[in-house]
Design a binder for these strands. Structure first.
Lengths: 141, 141
DNA sequence: CTTGCGTAGTTCGTGGCACGAACTATATGG
DNA sequence: CCATATAGTTCGTGCCACGAACTACGCAAG
């Protein structure tokens, strides 16, 4: 059963929106010398100090790739490695005050940009979109 | 005037959805040894044969980056360079039958995956989402 | 026609990034 | 204690994006 035309419009639309959002995020991040994956890293570290393996899983990266990412972020003073109390092989990753500050700046700029993007929607429409998007995300697990 | 809590929910939700979509696309593409930018390239070439400069603008890449991208895609037989009739400095890029076939396969898999993602929405909700998303994308220019 | 400037695309050097293989230090269970 | 598994690192490799430098071509003015 091939997908119906309306459904293709939804898929197309979602990807168009997605690419726009990513392009916006990438542009703003680049203005602060951050890559997308660095922004995602800082976002995850906002409210947790995961061990490397846990972090690798979150970012869907191989351990070795994460090692490099943390090396570079650490070198820039954005994060630090913290030895684990439970397992001496392990290290946790913590955002530094500098990293937190930069992350906040980027977040504010991105929020402003996206709100401009959805600015053409009425209040009710925005709430509708919020609810629908939340539903899709929740179902995606 | 700081953004309102509801608006933050929308921005958060949009990015969560966006990351999900990108992760899905990246995973399916990788299963066919394609990167995201290669998928985007093939998507653009689906219905046009742009000159390199035009293509670089579409993909928001520097000319030199595009040159490398086309080199690799050409090497894989997915695209070919076609000299320009109007300007001898220029080359157009055309997708090969092989590239078109691969692009279609990826597209079908991605479509199926996304339709599964939105499968929890009622028919009317899906149409609502389609319309709202289309409105945001149209306004973004 | 010639000249100077602009332009399309390529090459090169560089750094970021992701992967898998190999490795070291640590943890665990028999 | 020994064998196996595991957390994280290092290394080699290829992809990818950028900017600088370059070549070949286009264009306008003199």
């Amino acid at each position: 059963m091939p997908p119906r035309a309306h459904d293709l419009d939804l898929v197309d639309g979602l990807f168009q929106l997605s690419f726009r959002l990513h392009a916006t995020l990438a542009r703003i991040a680049a203005g602060h010398d951050l890559s997308l994956v660095q922004v995602r890293l800082l976002g995850i570290l906002r409210d947790r100090e995961p061990a490397m393996l846990e972090l690798a899983r979150h970012l869907e990266l191989e351990k070795s790739s994460l090692s490099g990412l943390i090396d570079r972020a650490e070198k820039r003073g954005l994060v630090e490695r913290v030895p684990s109390a439970e397992d001496r092989r392990a290290a946790h990753v913590r955002v530094t005050p500098q990293g937190r500050k930069l992350s906040r700046i980027v977040e504010d700029e991105v929020t402003a940009a996206v709100l401009t993007m959805v600015g053409g929607l009425e209040r009710a429409e925005r709430e509708q979109l919020t609810a629908l998007v939340a539903q899709v995300v929740a179902a995606a697990g």
